[in-house]
Amino acid sequence: MLIKAPKNSDVSSSEITDETLFRQRRRFLRTAVNLALTSTIATPLFVPASARAGTKLSNVKKSAYTIDEELTPFEDVTHYNNFYEFTTEKRDVAEMAQGFQARPWTVEVNGEVHKPRTFDIDDAIKRYALEERIYRLRCVEAWSMVIPWVGFPLAKLLKDVEPTANGKYVEFTTLHDPERMPGQRRKVLPWPYVEGLRLDEAMHPLTILAVGLYGEVLPPQNGAPLRLVVPWKYGFKCIKSIVRIRLTEKQPRNTWQVNNAREYGFYANVNPNVDHPRWSQSRERRIGEFFKRKTLMFNGYGEEVAGLYTGMDLAKFY
């Protein structure tokens, strides 16, 4: 299934080439620096290559799930982040997250499953074939990006642990470690960050666990080493630096809902017709553009996901 954006399909090829060239040069420089570093310091003995942000991920195949829209530049994707575990200043997250140790890293998968198991992140990367998915990301703050993620469908991992009949929801938890995540020293939100999906949402082919972007290992500020990406929901659903995935019978209470239930719900589907109580959701600013654009229902993924919500009052289940 190919997801075609209704607009913006006529991006000039020169723009794309420029971007690619820019990226290649950047990557070349970074690889050079990495090589210089690794040849002098004995890091490769302790840290696998896949651990370092900026390292190219291998065996990534292009996915049919893509859109013909201009990519948001790497610099913007990696320097404009909502990741309160580091700081609430979007422009400072990259700096605050620099040096965050994303290895060793394990992810517990348990709860209502027949085969609970704990994955080492590098084993998971090897086990599940990596795909590149170009998705829109729409933040609840009314800005958006287009990001080439690298990851694998969450469904594959869930099938491996075999949810029981009681497993109706999936709950995700972020690492809670104020030493490594200095933003957690202040109780801006109730830590650790928790998110949740209904099982059918979690099993949907569009839902992925991302381990990289722009073909490289996920930088810390974007949720290293493992984050959720659910492109038809607001960005805050895409929980970062996951350490636990738990299948539950009851609907999990996600952090933003706990923090302010009037403003943030469990579903958080992108919906131009249901405003945030304090600002409009009908339009958004695509990063890099001057004029705001109209926000699309389900962030433009309605054809694929609208069926999940038939008969539901989306103004009530926001």
């Binding site: 913007d76 320097h79 404009y80 979007k90 422009r91 800005w143 600013r285 990063i287 890099g288 001057f290």
Partner: peptide, 8 residues
């Protein structure tokens, strides 16, 4: 001014 100059 970063990724979102208008907001800034």
């Amino acid at each position: 001014l970063g990724a979102n100059p208008i907001e800034e």
